[in-house]
Amino acid sequence: MEFDGEFELEDVPPEKAWVVLSDPIAVRNSLKGCQYITPMDDDFSYDDYEADEDAETLPDADPEAVAARAFVEGQEYAALMQVGVGSVKPRFETSVTIQERDEEEFIMTATGTGTASGSSFSMDSGMHIHPLEDGEGSRIEWWTEADISGRIAQLGSRVINPVANKIVNNFFSDIEKQMSDVDETDSGITDRIRGML
């Protein structure tokens, strides 16, 4: 299954959009049903990990803390999501590896695999943030290619696609609000963080 699209942020320049989309906590908070996104190692346990529910995001967070937890190229992350698909609400235990992070061109790509209630999936995804030609804003181009098998795949694209589209639309709507909040209060915070990344 393939999903792709574009999203425009009229007043948020690419540099600020990049910093917010580089923060696993900001991404987690904008993904409905996502309980955490965290670096993982060989001993990681989805059941035992306890997420920091109160971690602050920009503009309230400490810039050094945001820079320290930013996505890292080559790092593997654990993500736990629970999403209603048709009549089931599977718990997706997912591992995602950041394949590329180009801070000059604002490109990030990732691969991932996961399992949930008799189903499994693999995915390749990415985003590219472009400056808007007529203004200070950004155009975010995103794409995901996913292979799904098992019980969830049996539901078919008529059930899966609307759920995926709703998650994506909610995500970008929430991310836009976070970016607008940062833009309104930013006094060089995102530039400082970019310098630390």
Rank of each mutant, 00 (worst) to 15 (best):
residue 169 N to G: 12
residue 162 P to Y: 08
residue 186 D to R: 01
residue 191 D to R: 06
residue 139 R to S: 14
residue 112 G to L: 09
residue 182 V to G: 10
residue 119 S to D: 11
residue 180 S to I: 11
residue 123 M to F: 14
residue 171 F to I: 04
residue 192 R to T: 10
residue 137 G to Q: 02
residue 134 D to I: 04
residue 169 N to Q: 13
residue 137 G to T: 04
residue 142 W to V: 04
residue 113 T to G: 14
residue 111 T to E: 05
residue 169 N to R: 14
residue 161 N to G: 08
residue 134 D to A: 12
residue 112 G to Y: 07
residue 189 I to H: 01
residue 128 H to T: 09
residue 189 I to N: 01
residue 115 T to N: 07
residue 161 N to I: 12
residue 132 L to I: 12
residue 115 T to G: 07
residue 179 M to D: 01
residue 175 I to K: 10
residue 113 T to H: 09
residue 113 T to W: 02
residue 172 F to L: 10
residue 160 I to W: 03
residue 172 F to M: 09
residue 187 S to Y: 02
residue 150 G to H: 05
residue 134 D to Y: 10
residue 165 N to T: 06
residue 134 D to P: 01
residue 162 P to Q: 04
residue 135 G to R: 07
residue 146 A to S: 15
residue 147 D to A: 12
residue 111 T to K: 15
residue 190 T to V: 11
residue 154 Q to T: 08
residue 124 D to K: 09
residue 154 Q to R: 14
residue 130 H to C: 11
residue 185 T to R: 07
residue 157 S to Q: 13
residue 177 K to T: 12
residue 150 G to D: 00
residue 123 M to L: 15
residue 143 W to K: 13
residue 112 G to V: 09
residue 180 S to R: 09
residue 159 V to E: 02
residue 138 S to M: 07
residue 145 E to Q: 11
residue 151 R to H: 02
residue 150 G to S: 04
residue 160 I to Q: 01
residue 172 F to K: 11
residue 192 R to K: 13
residue 146 A to V: 13
residue 148 I to C: 08
residue 182 V to T: 05
residue 148 I to R: 14
residue 192 R to L: 15
residue 161 N to S: 13
residue 174 D to N: 14
residue 169 N to W: 00
residue 174 D to A: 13
residue 153 A to V: 02
residue 186 D to H: 02
residue 189 I to Q: 09
residue 170 N to D: 11
residue 119 S to Q: 09
residue 170 N to P: 04
residue 114 G to A: 05
residue 181 D to H: 09
residue 181 D to W: 02
residue 156 G to P: 03
residue 147 D to P: 02
residue 130 H to I: 08
residue 153 A to L: 02
residue 184 E to V: 00
residue 125 S to T: 08
residue 175 I to Y: 06
residue 145 E to N: 13
residue 164 A to C: 08
residue 123 M to R: 02
residue 152 I to T: 12
residue 179 M to T: 06
residue 121 F to K: 01
residue 125 S to G: 12
residue 190 T to M: 10
residue 111 T to H: 07
residue 175 I to E: 07
residue 161 N to H: 11
